[in-house]
Amino acid sequence: MTPGPPPVRWGVLSTGRQAAAFAEDLMLLDDAELVAVGSRTAASARAFAARYAVERAYGGGPGELAADPDVDLVYVASVNAAHHGAVRTCLEAGKHVLCEKPLTTNVRDAQDLMRLAEARGLLLMEAMWTRCLPAVRRAARLVADGAVGTPHLLRAATGGRAPAPALARLRDPEGGGALLDSGVYPLALADLLLGTPQYIDARSLSTAPLVDDTTALLLGYPSGAMAELACSFATELPAHADLSGGEARIELPAPFYAADRVLLHPARGPSRAWPLPPTGRGYTHEASEAMRCVRAGLTESPLVPWSATLGVLTVTDAVRGAGSASSHRARHRTREGC
């Protein structure tokens, strides 16, 4: 039997809930090895390392982890506002990077990282796990194959009342707000299923500049399709998604961003369902894709291409740029729609 490739050696930057879930899923992959963890404090890094049997723990930010010669690929799970600096440090140190969504808080910073990754020949991938899930990938194939006919309307929302410990992070004007925290999920789904919007109409309720508690968006596409999207950390919102077309409706049950099945409801005839549960909590799929890209020498993932990351950030930039202290409404026509 031909031996498989050596494991990709991972470093995890952050010790929060997201990093812990990712570490647990990484243990399910035979071709992955978690060898180092980095945090802002040595004590937090040591506690995380002890919990997950990680060899090395680094405090003081991303620099020490990025300098570890035994780390091939870094998963960045720090707060949104810290993504740009952390990812840049890792790329400059020659590390491949999988960074939590949103990759950065604006298009300009994302393009800066993409140019650096391309120049260094390193993988840079946004950890938009939704695009890597089997159920979501099947839904995209169904749409591409014409199962719904001409797409008319996508509806998707995500949100819930945030627990008190999360409010400081969510209300940080440098990277907080419902749109950047959870609104990127419906936006990413719209990008996957419908492409680049021609116009953006949005309304946000805010308690501080650049910090939206709730945002509703209406996106229009050159094909005539529309997307009704919403996000909030102040109120509960239904977390399922559906795309209606001339021939059928596709449904991703709640929570759509972690979907374990896809349903097709034709205008005529019985409904069909494809149960496609993720492995582990679902982070395994983005991790496997990142490792496949590293082994193939790719700088970007075909499943989560840079164009998709920039497409979502273009919308968030347009909406957040119109912010005010109480509420705002943004109208924006994209370049393609001019």
Results as ranks from 00 to 15, higher is better:
residue 44 S to P: 04
residue 44 S to F: 06
residue 45 A to W: 15
residue 45 A to K: 12
residue 45 A to R: 08
residue 45 A to S: 08
residue 45 A to H: 11
residue 46 R to H: 15
residue 46 R to E: 13
residue 47 A to H: 11
residue 47 A to M: 02
residue 48 F to T: 02
residue 48 F to R: 02
residue 48 F to K: 04
residue 48 F to C: 09
residue 49 A to N: 03
residue 49 A to C: 03
residue 49 A to L: 12
residue 50 A to E: 14
residue 50 A to P: 10
residue 50 A to W: 07
residue 51 R to I: 01
residue 51 R to W: 09
residue 51 R to C: 07
residue 51 R to Y: 06
residue 51 R to H: 11
residue 52 Y to L: 07
residue 52 Y to S: 03
residue 52 Y to I: 12
residue 52 Y to E: 00
residue 53 A to N: 13
residue 53 A to Q: 14
residue 53 A to Y: 00
residue 53 A to S: 15
residue 53 A to F: 01
residue 53 A to M: 04
residue 54 V to A: 04
residue 54 V to T: 02
residue 54 V to N: 09
residue 54 V to E: 11
residue 55 E to R: 15
residue 55 E to I: 07
residue 55 E to D: 15
residue 55 E to F: 01
residue 55 E to C: 03
residue 55 E to N: 04
residue 56 R to G: 06
residue 56 R to H: 14
residue 56 R to S: 15
residue 56 R to Y: 05
residue 57 A to L: 10
residue 57 A to S: 10
residue 57 A to T: 12
residue 57 A to R: 05
residue 57 A to I: 13
residue 58 Y to Q: 11
residue 58 Y to K: 11
residue 58 Y to M: 07
residue 58 Y to A: 02
residue 58 Y to V: 09
residue 58 Y to E: 01
residue 60 G to I: 08
residue 60 G to W: 12
residue 61 G to R: 10
residue 61 G to M: 11
residue 61 G to Y: 09
residue 61 G to N: 03
residue 61 G to F: 13
residue 61 G to P: 11
residue 62 P to E: 10
residue 62 P to C: 05
residue 62 P to W: 15
residue 63 G to A: 15
residue 63 G to C: 01
residue 63 G to Q: 13
residue 63 G to E: 15
residue 64 E to R: 15
residue 64 E to T: 13
residue 65 L to E: 00
residue 65 L to C: 05
residue 65 L to Q: 01
residue 65 L to G: 03
residue 66 A to Q: 06
residue 66 A to D: 01
residue 66 A to Y: 04
residue 66 A to P: 00
residue 66 A to E: 04
residue 66 A to M: 05
residue 66 A to L: 02
residue 67 A to F: 03
residue 67 A to V: 01
residue 67 A to Y: 07
residue 67 A to M: 04
residue 67 A to T: 01
residue 68 D to P: 13
residue 68 D to T: 07
residue 68 D to Y: 09
residue 68 D to N: 08
residue 69 P to N: 09
residue 69 P to Q: 03
residue 70 D to Y: 02
residue 70 D to T: 14
residue 70 D to K: 07
residue 71 V to A: 01
residue 71 V to P: 12
residue 72 D to F: 03
residue 72 D to M: 10
residue 72 D to T: 00
residue 72 D to R: 02
residue 73 L to C: 14
residue 73 L to W: 01
